[in-house]
Each structure stands twice: as C-alpha cells, then as structure tokens.
Amino acid sequence: MTTAPVKSNVPSRSGLKAWLSSDAPASRGHARAVQLYLGWLKLYENKLAFLGFLIIFSLVLIAAFAPLLATTEPNAQDLSKRLLAPGTSGHLLGTDELGRDIYSRLVYGSRITLLIVGIVAFTAPVFGLLIGTVAGYLGGWVDQVLMRLVDIFLAFPRLVLALAFVAAIGAGIESAIIAISLTAWPPYARIARAETLTIRNADYISAVRLQGAGIMHIIVGHIWPLCLSSIIVRVTLDMAGIILTAAGLGFLGLGAQPPEPEWGAMISAGRKFVLDQWWVAAMPGMAIFIVSLGFNLLGDGLRDILDPKKSQS
C-alpha cells in the first residue's frame, strides 16, 4: 500500500489514503471511490454493525469454499456412527440420526440459506420499491389500485400464504423462494410509497420535471436513491425473518427436501431426538441464530452509512 508513488502535490498522508479522503475529487470515479471509502470508515467505526458485516461476509466465504471447509460429504451416511455427541473425533458438531456429519451439513447448508436470502433480497424489495414509488409518484387511480393490491397481500398471514403457494406448485427450495418473495414485497411497497409522498413535490423533483425528464427517469434516478436507505435497512432487518420463514417451510417439510442440508429441515429432523441428542436440532438452530443476528446488526448500522450527510461529519 505504501508503494504507491505520490504523484500529486498532496501533503502528508500516504498516497492512497490521501487520494481516498480527498475533498475535491478530480473525476467521477474518484468521487465514487472517496464515497465508498468514507462509507467503509463509517462501517468500521460502528463496531456492532461491523460485527454483523463480518458474520455475513463469513457466511459468503463459507458458502463459496464449502467443499474445502467441509470434512465429509454432506449426505454421506454412516449408520455405525449415528447420533455421536459434538467433539467426537472427526465430528466437531456431532452426527445426526443417519450418521451424517452436522458440521459439514451446516457448511453446505449455508449455500442454500444464501441462495434463499440472495434471491428474496433482490426480488421482493425491488418489486416493492417499484410498486410503491410508482403508486406514490403517480397518485390517483394508479395509487388506489396498487395499494389495494398491497393491502390484500398484507392481509394474508405470511407463512400461510407461502404454505398455500408451496402446496399449489409443489414442495422444493424454488417454490419456497417464490413463496417467500411473494409474501415479502408488500411492506417494501408501503415504505417506498410513504417516502415518495414526502418527496414527490420537492423542488428538486420539480426541477428535473422542468428539464423534460420522463416519469421512470424521475422515479428511478431521483426517488429511488432517497427510498433506498430505508429499504435496505428494512431488508437487512427482514433477512432474519426470511431465513426463519425458509427454515419454517423446511421444518414443515414444504421447503428443501431431504437429503438437502437446509438448516430448517435439519432442525425438523432433529426434533425427534431433542431431549436426548440435543445437538442435532441445536446446531442448525445456532447457525440460523448467528446469521439472523448478523443481518440485524448490519441493518442497524447501515442507515448511518448510506447517508452521505452523516459519513462526512
């Protein structure tokens, strides 16, 4: 890092750091880099949010390098070694009722969790944001129609709607994802609409209207950036709920199907032994707890980080 030569006449500070904390960036890319760096500093300063970030980052790493981290195949059965306690040689977190290594299953299960979380996080909030901002910005009958639709979706109990949907299109991880997305978007639409109503008549929106910008340009370029931070915060806070819903569907046998190492399905399988062999259910439960906690901690700190006003004081 110190090898970067200082080309400009920047006084003190090492080259990269000075370049990243410049208050008069020279180009668009530079300005963006400065903004990212300041956001990073803000995240780093907020210890709890940073802990959350580390947990999520580790989850991503574990999912990416699952084959390297796992000690056995996740579905390799060995009935002679069933229900071994945690710490038994070769089985850090014990084995389940079919003699499968719980640690390896958890490691591979992180992929499923990340898949669910990732897809839901990129579909439901985006859809909700679009519906909410369009409704809020256009108003009138468009608003009425869209928001009544939201009301209908909100009135359904989330898990029950997901259940009905899974029952209709068949059990499996994909239908669980679709079901969760379908039930998760309405709150985002509500938030986005409320935010849009507060800014739709702002002078800066009038100014861009005067420049001849189209409706979608205004919504995506001007209204979305202002709704985004509350949406992102809400997403990270919802992530825990999404993981739990996915686990719940798995627990009920409607999500991931055996032998897939989905965390909720693992808890479901372990409940038969929960009194005598507690670890079979407790270990995936712990994994769900840690990841949910990570998302909650990160979400709590993200609002400050996403606001450029706060990242520079």
């Binding site: 300005a31 002078d203 009038s206 420049q211």
Partner: peptide, 29 residues
C-alpha cells in the same frame, strides 16, 4: 424556459453531487 426555486436547501437533490445535478439535463437532452 427554466426556473430557479426559492429555497436552495430544498431545490437540490440531497443524494446527487453537483456534477450529477449539472450533467443530468445535458444527458437528458
């Protein structure tokens, strides 16, 4: 026709840099 608004604290998008504010109309046109 263009317009200059009353309150400079409300007429600039809080998340857009000066560069974006000024280049946007050019890109639009």
């Amino acid at each position: 026709i263009q317009m200059v608004f009353q309150d400079p604290y409300a007429s600039l998008h809080p998340r857009h840099t000066v560069d974006r504010v000024l280049s946007e109309p050019l890109k639009l046109h």
